[in-house]
């Protein structure tokens, strides 16, 4: 598995994400946002958490228009895998690869804690190692995680099995308690919780391991 992690000014989970990919057996390249092309033969691109470009204008808005993001969109359109975590989820929504947007948390507060999630979809490489309905724990740390979309889009996401995770107890006002969303082909995943901070028993649990392991299994079989 060949993984690339995009680094923006203000990214702060890029190294954690690289560690999580490496732990699943990936060769990892770090990719600077001003690059205009991706390394050859990447299987998966990770867009990390943090505060890209200081959250100026809107969270993820400037990052989504950076030179490398055109290449990320092309990669996704070719059927490549992309995961955006926290700020990375915001970036994916701003690029249009995932629908909807992430607004300020309904209680205005920055939420930073480990939280319960329910696995909804088990489709696609990111989700296949989880069991449907499984309850897991992952850390969240965000100010703008309130997933917002029109009602008919929320219904469509449900109908197409594109809700990856839901919060057991909604921390941010997110529509339908949605914590993570998949693309129609299930190869692009955006989520507010941090699976890369849940891959080591000593640090935040190991409920994120299955996500990276599932991806590795699919890519190594390919």
């Amino acid at each position: 598995m060949r993984a690339g992690v995009i680094v923006f000014p203000g990214s702060n989970c890029d190294r954690d994400l690289a560690v999580a990919f490496a732990q699943a057996g990936a060769d990892v390249s770090m990719i600077w946002h001003k690059d205009v092309s991706l390394p050859d033969n990447l299987d998966v691109i990770g867009i990390p958490g943090g505060f890209s470009f200081g959250d100026y204008l809107r969270c993820g808005a400037i990052a989504a228009r950076s030179p490398i993001c055109s290449a990320v969109v092309e990669h996704a359109k070719r059927g490549g895998y992309v995961i955006g975590i926290c700020n990375g989820f915001q970036v994916l929504c701003e690029t249009g690869l995932l629908p909807g947007t992430l607004m300020r948390n309904s209680e205005i507060k920055f939420v930073c804690k480990t939280i319960g999630l329910r696995v909804e979809s088990t489709q696609g490489a990111f989700m296949k190692t989880y069991n449907s309905g499984q309850e897991i724990q992952m850390p969240v740390a965000h100010h703008d995680g309130n997933y917002t979309a029109e009602d008919d889009l929320i219904a469509r996401l449900d109908g197409e099995d594109r809700v990856a995770f839901r919060y057991l107890k909604n921390p941010n006002g997110s529509a339908g308690d949605i914590a993570g969303v998949l693309s129609a082909n299930k190869r692009v995943l955006g989520l507010m919780p941090h699976p890369e901070r849940a891959v080591d028993a000593a640090l935040g649990g190991t409920d994120g391991t299955a996500l990276f392991a599932g991806l590795a299994t699919v890519l190594e079989d390919a």
Binding site: L57, A61, R65, T101, T148, A149
Partner: peptide, 9 residues
């Protein structure tokens, strides 16, 4: 349309 507003919201 392209940057200054997020027309979803």
């Amino acid at each position: 349309e392209k940057l200054l507003a997020n027309t979803v919201i």
